[in-house]
Computed example of a mutant assay.
Amino acid sequence: MEAARAEIRQAVLTAFCAALHDTRLPPLALIELAAHAVGSVYREVADAHCGDQPCPCGWRPRLQADLEALQAALALSAASTPQPDLAGMAVLGRA
């Protein structure tokens, strides 16, 4: 799961940086566009898992619960503080 998270993050960051350079839009405007893209991907995937012949994976979309999970993930990621880099820390002793 961590590899998938890193791969998706890198793809979003690459697209964000390219759009920032190409459009000169403010960063928050581009982040809002990224949120719209995630929402549209959710809707497309959810639609593929509904109906007469849903996907055999077994996932069943639940819009309200899914939106709450997405919002919580966004809030957690946006509010988290970066972890300190061990390379930049002062040495306090020996192991």
Rank of each mutant, 00 (worst) to 15 (best):
S77V: 05
G88I: 00
A46N: 08
D52N: 08
V91M: 02
A46D: 11
V91E: 05
L63T: 15
A65E: 15
G51T: 01
S40Y: 11
A19H: 05
V38A: 14
P61S: 07
S40G: 01
D22V: 08
Q53A: 13
I31R: 08
R9A: 14
A48T: 06
G88D: 07
P61T: 08
A73M: 10
I31S: 05
A3K: 14
I8N: 00
L76S: 14
Q71Y: 07
R62W: 04
A35L: 11
A87F: 07
G88V: 01
A19W: 02
A46P: 05
P56H: 03
A65Q: 14
A65P: 01
A4I: 14
G93Y: 02
A78Q: 03
V45S: 01
L74E: 06
A90H: 03
R24K: 11
E7G: 03
L74T: 09
Q53Y: 12
A65C: 03
T81P: 01
C17M: 07
D85C: 09
S77T: 08
L20V: 00
A73D: 13
L76H: 12
L13M: 11
L63E: 15
C50S: 12
A37H: 05
L86A: 08
D47S: 11
G88K: 04
D66R: 09
V12C: 13
R60Y: 03
L28M: 15
A69M: 12
M1I: 09
H21D: 14
Q71W: 03
T23S: 15
R94F: 04
R24A: 11
R62Q: 14
F16A: 06
M89W: 00
E44A: 15
L20G: 00
G88C: 04
V12E: 09
E2I: 09
R9K: 07
D52V: 07
R62M: 08
A3I: 11
D52P: 06
A18V: 13
V38E: 05
L76R: 13
A6T: 06
W59F: 15
G39V: 04
I31A: 10
E68T: 05
Q10M: 10
T81D: 08
S77Y: 06
S40Q: 15
A11W: 02
